[in-house]
Computed example of a mutant assay.
Amino acid sequence: MSQFGQSEIFGIASLLVTLLQYGPYSWRTYSGELHPHVFSYSIWGIGAAIVATAQWSAGAGPGAWAMGMVAVLCFVVVGLSLRADVKYISKRDIWTLVAALAALPLWFYTQDPLFAVIIITLVDIAAFHMIFRKALARPTEDSIVFYAIAIVQYALSIFATENYNLTTLLNPIALILCSAAVIAAMYLNRNGTKITAS
């Protein structure tokens, strides 16, 4: 493979899709149209930075580029979200945040990138749980398009990955499935099929 090959092309494509995903989303958050879950994006920002580092060390190459950019943009969304109403945060969300943040330091105690990715993936799922519950309760306060583009971005990052293994694939596959669940929750509750969080 040449120095600039298929992996690099998919890597650049994933970066462009990430910008396409977060650019309008950030603007709509700034304008008050959307109200992202502050806790979820805080967790994702930290988690994405760790996953990008672990993926890079495991040989993901350009497959780790988008995750690194996601880490930065998640914190942009957090900053913009703090300007808005945060009444949707529940006691369960607070406990989820505490548990997720408590789990994050565990990855420092291992030399194994896979263990780090497993921990972060579980933390990401916990963050998605908060988004999912909010999508059920307030389906119009977030963007279906954002999560649909997220699926494309994570799929492109998989195609950009140079070495396929559990370390490089677990997190993006989990995020694709979680994004699909959030889309379904918002779509169904916007269209008359009322599903409530337990």
Rank of each mutant, 00 (worst) to 15 (best):
V70F: 09
T96D: 01
F128V: 01
I46H: 07
F108I: 13
L136R: 10
I118K: 01
S57C: 06
I195S: 06
A84M: 14
L114W: 11
L106F: 06
S57Q: 14
F159N: 03
S57Y: 12
A150L: 15
N163W: 04
A58C: 01
V51P: 00
R133V: 11
A49S: 08
M69G: 03
R138I: 13
V70I: 15
I158F: 11
V70W: 11
L169A: 08
L97R: 11
F159M: 14
F128T: 07
V51R: 13
A66H: 09
S179R: 01
L97M: 13
S90R: 09
I9G: 01
T53Y: 14
L170Y: 04
A181H: 04
I176Q: 04
S143Q: 05
L19I: 13
P113T: 00
V76I: 15
A66L: 07
A160E: 06
N171D: 12
Q6H: 13
A160F: 08
V182S: 06
I12V: 15
N165C: 08
V152R: 05
I173Y: 01
L19R: 02
L170D: 08
S179G: 00
F108N: 13
V76Q: 01
R190E: 12
I94M: 15
V17P: 00
M186W: 03
P105R: 01
A155N: 02
I94T: 15
F39W: 10
Y22A: 00
I183H: 03
F4P: 00
Y187E: 07
L16F: 03
V77W: 03
L104H: 07
S57A: 11
A52E: 06
V77G: 02
M186E: 07
I94K: 12
V76S: 08
N191Q: 11
Y109K: 15
Q21D: 03
H35L: 14
A155Q: 14
C74F: 10
L104S: 09
I149R: 09
V51I: 14
L82V: 07
S42I: 11
A64G: 04
G47F: 00
S31F: 10
A116Y: 04
A184P: 03
F146V: 05
N189M: 01
V152H: 09
E33R: 14
F115G: 10
F75Y: 12
T121F: 03
G61V: 01
V152G: 09
A181G: 05
G45P: 08
K134F: 05
H35C: 14
S198I: 15
E8M: 00
I195H: 11
P62A: 02
I94S: 04
A160R: 04
T110L: 08
Y147M: 07
A127I: 08
V117M: 04
P172L: 03
A135E: 02
R138V: 15
A150E: 15
D93T: 02
N189P: 02
S2G: 12
N191I: 12
A71M: 09
Q153C: 10
L15P: 00
T168Y: 01
V98P: 02
Q55H: 14
S7V: 01
I151D: 02
C74N: 13
F10H: 08
S57D: 14
A137N: 05
T196W: 10
S90D: 15
